[in-house]
Amino acid sequence: MNIKACITVTLKNGVLDPQGQAIRQALNSLDFPGIGSVRQGKVFDITLEDTSEPDAEKLLQDMCEKLLANTVIEDYTVRIIR
């Protein structure tokens, strides 16, 4: 079956995210209340053909480890949509 997945990559907790901070300031200046913090990240929508969900999960993890995230500074999450 074909599988759609969404991978999110963000800077690790504890790593300074100046872009996230700038966005939070801009949201504050638009008077949005109660913003604790903003972390900016990247999203990858990936479709895989002719695979199973467990195989896809493994493959996507591998993609994150080898290219999509730099695990020195970034965390990633893999979400299979269908």
């Binding site: 800077l11 790593v15 300074l16 100046p18 872009q19 700038a22 730099n70 020195v72 500074i73």
Partner: peptide, 17 residues
Amino acid sequence: LTEAQLLPGGLMRNASL
């Protein structure tokens, strides 16, 4: 070299952006 893990650490966007 850091991305290839031939050197430790990583280089991120300048703090000033």
